[in-house]
């Protein structure tokens, strides 16, 4: 589904990703762990096409398409979802307005009919319920005045509504208390744990992986994947630290 080959990327001329290769098949959940500064968030942003992140070599193929040739909004319409480590506040634009625009823009790009207001509200209510987020929160402006945990749950509601084929979740577990972590974990499973979908979970800690069990775990260090393994690798890492495992 997603094939990253020898990816090199830099920010402001500073190389961050240095030959990253990774394949994710449909039906799989991959976790990427690694120390601060290893390039985890850069990987997420490069996949999401954020301006300022320059790919200098390598390729990314998504369902046979050259992902890097697509504009950010085209990547979303192609089925890629990027869960932000720091979700952005947008004063003056309500979550519902934002998400309806987003969903219908994606549908339009795929040649599908837009959802009516009523159909959209039904969908939004269902996904908000899944993440135990009050519908009133969705009437408020995008992420404005939301706590850290609410922002992350709102991100997962967005993911539920947009229903992507592939999600890159960048430290979705940061800023969550224990209950919220469980709710978010269960949300990820409910939305993404399907044979035709896949997830790339970027995280620092084992704790989210207790809820969302990965099929593969990779350690990212110095801009490339240095070790890969099964779910046990995360436990080893938790026990022994990056220095021992990623050296």
């Amino acid at each position: 589904m997603l094939a990253i080959d020898n990816l090199h990327a830099e920010i402001d001329g500073k190389p961050i990703l240095q030959g990253l290769t990774l394949n994710v098949n449909a039906g799989e959940i991959h976790a990427i762990m690694g120390p601060n500064g290893a390039g985890k968030s850069t990987l997420a942003y490069v996949l999401g096409g954020r301006p300022g992140y320059e790919v200098t070599a390598g390729s990314v193929s998504f369902n046979g398409q050259d992902l890097l040739a697509l504009e950010p909004h085209e990547r979303a319409a192609a089925g890629l979802f990027l869960g932000f480590q720091y979700p952005v506040e947008i004063p003056g634009v309500s979550n519902l307005q934002f998400l309806r625009e987003a969903l219908n823009a994606q549908r339009k790009a795929r040649g599908e009919e837009p959802l009516s207001g009523a159909e959209f509200l039904k969908l939004a209510r269902e996904k908000a319920g899944l993440l135990k987020l009050d519908m009133d929160m969705l009437k408020r402006n995008v992420n404005v005045g939301f706590s850290g945990g609410e922002k992350k749950r709102a991100e997962m509601v967005q993911m539920g509504i947009l229903d992507p084929a592939f999600s890159v979740l960048d430290e979705t577990d940061s800023g969550l208390d224990i209950d919220a972590l469980r709710i978010v974990g269960e949300g990820i499973n409910a939305i993404m744990r399907q044979p035709e979908k896949a997830v790339l979970l970027i995280t620092h800690y084992q704790r989210l992986l207790d809820y969302v069990r990965p099929d593969h775990v990779h350690i990212l260090a110095r801009g490339r994947i240095v070790t890969s393994g099964g779910p046990d690798l995360a436990l080893t890492l938790e026990r022994e630290g990056y220095e021992a495992v990623a050296a």
Partner: peptide, 20 residues
Amino acid sequence: YYMAARGIPPETAKKLLVRA
């Protein structure tokens, strides 16, 4: 960029932000 990442094309994003 956040809007683009959710699939909203640049011209629509600009309009939404100016509207707000």
